[in-house]
């Protein structure tokens, strides 16, 4: 019977290790945040062009990650992109309503993310509020086009 006890123990450890492995993959590798459901608040922002921004992209403030992009949809009224972000609860009610959101690129070819910068207004954005001041992604082709047309004008 001793043999079957150690066997049961090792099977139990095996299953446990598998589940811990999955937790590791979830938290450390995919950056899944278990507390997101209750520890975040939502913020919206409309961009004229989001470039290569994807859901789950980072939202940073002064370079520190403070949240993630939840969803991106086309707003058919204004024909712009409506981005929903979820941010740490710590920032809830702390962002002035003239804060700006810009789509930035990490490095030359890196992925795109949203950078928030704080304004100076005394009014704060509530949960589910909208960031009005936005700056679209830089699209390389447009930049080159502008550059070339400026050259030809001269």
């Amino acid at each position: 019977m001793k043999r079957s006890k150690t066997m049961e123990l090792s099977v139990g450890l095996f299953m446990l290790a598998g589940i811990l492995g999955l937790v590791f993959l979830g938290l450390k590798v995919s950056g899944l945040d278990l507390q997101r459901a209750d520890d975040t608040f939502e913020l919206r922002a409309n961009f004229a062009n989001i470039g290569g921004l994807k859901p789950r992209a980072r939202v940073t403030m002064a370079g520190v990650t403070v949240g993630r992009v939840e969803s991106i949809d086309l707003n058919t009224e204004w024909y712009d992109a409506e981005v929903v972000m979820s941010l740490d609860n710590e920032l809830s009610g702390m962002l002035p309503d003239d804060s700006t959101a810009a789509i930035l690129t990490s490095g030359l070819l890196g992925e795109q993310y949203i950078g928030l910068s704080v304004g100076g207004s005394p009014e704060m954005i509530e949960d589910g509020g909208v960031v009005r001041d936005t700056q679209s992604a830089l699209v390389l082709e447009e930049l080159i086009q502008q550059f070339v047309s400026n050259l030809t004008k001269d």
Partner: peptide, 12 residues
């Protein structure tokens, strides 16, 4: 970079 690109449901 890993966390930014790996989706829990999509990839894992």
């Amino acid at each position: 970079n890993m966390q930014a690109s790996v989706g829990f449901f999509n990839d894992i």
